[in-house]
Amino acid sequence: MKRSLGEQTFDIGNSILMILISLMTLYPLLYVLFSSLSDPQYVVQNRGLLLYPQGLNFDAYRMVFRNPNILTGFGNTLFYVTVGTGINILLTALGAYALSRKNVMLTNPVMFLIVFTMFFEGGLIPLYLLMRNLDLLDTRLAVILPSAVSAFNLIIMRTAFQSVPESLEESARIDGAGDWTILFRIVLPLSMPVVAVMILFYGVSHWNSWFFATIFLQTRDYFPLQVILREILISNDTNAMSVGVGTSDQMAIGETIKYATIIIATVPILFLYPFLQKYFVKGVMIGAIKE
């Protein structure tokens, strides 16, 4: 079909606009990357655009990986992401399956209570008292359990489960299958795009989580990477990593250490997106619209 001049002009303008927006979104990350690889003195003395590393230098990364707190925090974050996401998916799937069945009583009142928690909550003090009464303070479970189920994600997964044909469940029950078999061998395999999106949502949330750790944890061996990153960026605590550097150079190398720490904390989660991207749009649409 022949396109008019106006349509072609619109497509060109739209493409240019999207490219500019993409560059504006990508440049801050590239700036942090280039700064972490640049000469520390150049980063301190020069401000403005940075289009490539100035004086390629890997000292900041060597000093970051030399810090035992970074390695410990990285391991803790991997634990919180893997174990926490597993608990999130299991509990969300169980709740969504129960609430998506038509033969379950009081599903509408329960859904009302779940939606109610999206607008109103008890607050931080009752949550802290709950963790204390459960004897979970200063444990890894104190970081994982408060966000075990997201009401928003539960609603998305429930809507996705409702789109599974009832005939499949009926035929499975005729063959003697119970609810556990139907959930794990029929409903979940047919809802893998939504499950992939839930893994992405929960995984990113755990990776970026730091607030509960600062409230409930006291032992530094349990601190996730984001808490260590917060100390470095906000408290400007880079002296431990710049040992052996002259006093005049500590401020300069401290700046590149901050940038290197941001890259180390950001890059791993970015590698997760390409593997789940093909499920993202489909999963959200399935969970948002009931067919």
Rank of each mutant, 00 (worst) to 15 (best):
R3V: 04
L5D: 07
G6D: 02
D11F: 07
N14V: 01
T25V: 12
L26P: 06
Y31P: 00
V32K: 04
S35C: 05
S35D: 04
L37H: 11
S38E: 08
V44E: 08
Q45C: 01
L51V: 14
P53I: 04
G55F: 11
N57K: 07
D59K: 13
Y61D: 03
Y61N: 03
Y61S: 03
N67S: 10
N69P: 00
T72K: 12
L78Q: 03
I89C: 03
T92Y: 09
A93L: 05
A93T: 14
L94N: 02
Y97V: 00
L99N: 05
L99C: 06
S100I: 10
R101F: 04
K102A: 10
L106K: 10
L113C: 10
M118D: 06
M118A: 01
G122I: 00
G123F: 11
L124G: 01
L129D: 05
L130W: 12
M131A: 02
L136A: 08
L136M: 15
L137F: 13
L137N: 10
T139P: 06
V143N: 12
I144E: 05
S147C: 02
A148N: 04
F152W: 15
L154S: 05
M157I: 03
T159F: 01
F161A: 02
Q162C: 07
S163G: 09
E166G: 12
E170H: 10
A172L: 06
I174Y: 06
D175M: 03
A177E: 09
D179R: 14
W180F: 14
V187H: 09
A196F: 13
A196W: 07
V197S: 09
M198W: 10
Y202V: 00
Y202F: 09
V204S: 04
W207K: 01
A213P: 02
R220C: 00
F223W: 15
F223I: 05
Q226L: 06
Q226D: 06
V227Q: 13
I228Q: 10
L229K: 11
E231F: 09
I232Q: 05
I234D: 03
N236D: 13
D237G: 00
A240S: 14
M241Q: 07
S242W: 01
D249N: 10
D249H: 09
Q250S: 01
M251Y: 15
M251L: 14
Y259W: 02
V267H: 08
V267T: 09
V267W: 09
F271K: 02
L276Y: 11
G283P: 12
M285V: 15
I286W: 09
A288G: 15
